[in-house]
C-alpha cells in the first residue's frame, strides 16, 4: 500500500471506529430505564450536598510540570528523525545530538536543584 492509501485507511477507520462505542450507547438508550430526579441528578459528593462550583482555578503547580513536559516533548520530536538515521551519522551525529540533549539535561538538573520537581502537598 502506498502512503496516501495508508492515510485513507486511517481516515475510514475513524468513522468505522466511532460505531464501536456509539452502538452500545444507542442500544442502552432504548433498553435502559430513564427515571431522573432532582436528587438523583445532583453531582455526587459522598452523599452531602455539593458546596461551591468545581469549575474553578486550580493549583498552579500543574503548569510548571506542563512546561517541563513541553521542553522534553519537543526534544523527542527532534530525537526520532535523528534516531532513524543515527547509524549513518556516526560519531559526529552522536556529538551533535549529545550537545542538544546535554543542554536540556542541564536544564533538568537546574529545575531539580530549584525544587521544581518536588510535589508539595
Amino acid at each position: 500500500m502506498t502512503d496516501s492509501l495508508n492515510h485513507l485507511f486511517l481516515g475510514i477507520f475513524f468513522v468505522a471506529a466511532l460505531v464501536v462505542p456509539a452502538l452500545p450507547i444507542v442500544l442502552a438508550r432504548f433498553i435502559a430505564p430513564k427515571r431522573p430526579g432532582p436528587v438523583k441528578n445532583e453531582v455526587y459528593e459522598c452523599g452531602v450536598e455539593a458546596k461551591g462550583d468545581s469549575w474553578i482555578q486550580f493549583r498552579i503547580q500543574y503548569v510548571t510540570f506542563a512546561i517541563l513536559f513541553v521542553i522534553f516533548d519537543v526534544e523527542a520530536l527532534f530525537l526520532f528523525p535523528w534516531a532513524v538515521v543515527f547509524k549513518g551519522a556516526g560519531w559526529a551525529g552522536l556529538a551533535a545530538m549529545g550537545l542538544f540533549i546535554g543542554i536540556l539535561t542541564v536544564g533538568l538538573i537546574y529545575a531539580w536543584q530549584e525544587g521544581l520537581l518536588e510535589w508539595e502537598s
Binding site: 475513524f14 462505542p21 452500545p24 442500544l27 442502552a28 433498553i31
Partner: peptide, 30 residues
Amino acid sequence: MVTKEDLIPDGADRLCHFLAPILIVVPALY
C-alpha cells in the same frame, strides 16, 4: 451494563459528558 440507567448530572456540560467515552475508545482502537 446496557440495561443500567445512564445518569447525567444537572450542571454537566452535556456535550463533553457524552463525547468523552466515545473519544477515549476510538484512539484505543486505532
